[in-house]
Simulated scan of single mutants.
Amino acid sequence: MTSPISLTLSPTTHDLGGFRVRRVLPQKARAMVGPFIFVDEFGPAQLDIGRDLGVRPHPHIGLATVTYLFDGAIDHRDSLGTFQTIRPGEVNLMTAGSGIVHSERSPPAEMARGAAMFGMQTWLALPDALEDAEPAFENVGADALPRIEDTGVSARIIMGTLWGQSAPTTCHSPTIYADVMLGAGGSAPIDSEADERAVMLVDGDGALDGIPLEPYRLYLIAPGSKPRIDSITGGRAMLLGGGAFGSERHIWWNFVGSTNERIRAAADRWNAGDFPMVPGDDEEFIPIPEVPLTRGRT
């Protein structure tokens, strides 16, 4: 019997003092899955009372960030003047284009009881025609995202079209992204025919066509395969992917680009203070580290 899994990627885990971040993309073995060029899972964890997530203002170019929470809340601010508290089941899509700066903080009410931390942050590479697009931001509420209900299964479509329904979230290139919640004995087909697809188990137990999934690993689904995902006692998995990206992308620190020259220019702009400020959060920033945690083909 042919395996539905073509490649398995193990995460690199970073302990940020109170919670862990597990990064499965980018890796040498695989740079992208569809437009997804960066995939982080964080938590579950609860910060000490009074502690702020405290991600200070930092820049991006050439990508769109997608933040999706299972638990907790995050205050997003950006250089467009956006202020948005993101909560579980919603999606924040921030399109960097030619350049944007943002910060991510814990809301005061969360800090007062110990901020919960559990969710996903992914980056989508922008196609050539949109690398220099005007920055943009959108929040799509949980009620606006299609929910697929079946016996033992509840799936929320975050981006793209799955199981015959489409999310209203902007897609800059062909993209699929879904939160699949399985009850005990639950099962669902992965019916998308996207060029590239992958699954990550984030809670409980799960399997693809009977092959057990280990938490936080990224399992790439073989082209043409239409496996079922199921669970014995209950689980939760993220399905992601989309069209194969048409051109090479480089990634370094918070920058994605079609050329290294674009990335070097963005780094020079940040060092020179030429990116816009974040209204309401303009007293500190993250300097470019000597050895960034995010490095790819540069």
Rank of each mutant, 00 (worst) to 15 (best):
Y68I: 05
D128M: 11
G141I: 10
K28H: 10
E149R: 15
S98I: 07
N271H: 12
G224H: 11
A198T: 10
F137D: 07
S247A: 08
S98T: 12
D281L: 04
G43N: 11
S192W: 10
D203S: 14
G242N: 02
T67V: 01
R197N: 00
A167N: 03
A109P: 09
D282S: 06
P289N: 01
G81P: 03
S258M: 09
M238Q: 10
F118T: 08
S98R: 15
G234W: 09
R87G: 00
L124D: 04
I263D: 00
I190C: 11
A178Q: 10
P289F: 01
P212T: 02
K226N: 10
R295L: 02
G186R: 09
L130Q: 14
T65A: 03
A29T: 12
W163C: 01
T259S: 11
E193C: 10
R105F: 06
M32P: 04
G34T: 08
D78W: 09
R156S: 02
P287H: 12
N139F: 07
Y216G: 06
A207R: 13
R147H: 14
A116V: 01
I74R: 05
N271Q: 15
G18Q: 07
T12M: 10
E138G: 02
I74P: 02
T12C: 04
G243P: 09
V199F: 08
E134G: 10
W270Q: 04
M238K: 09
P107V: 00
K28W: 03
D268M: 14
P107H: 03
E248S: 14
I86N: 01
R295D: 03
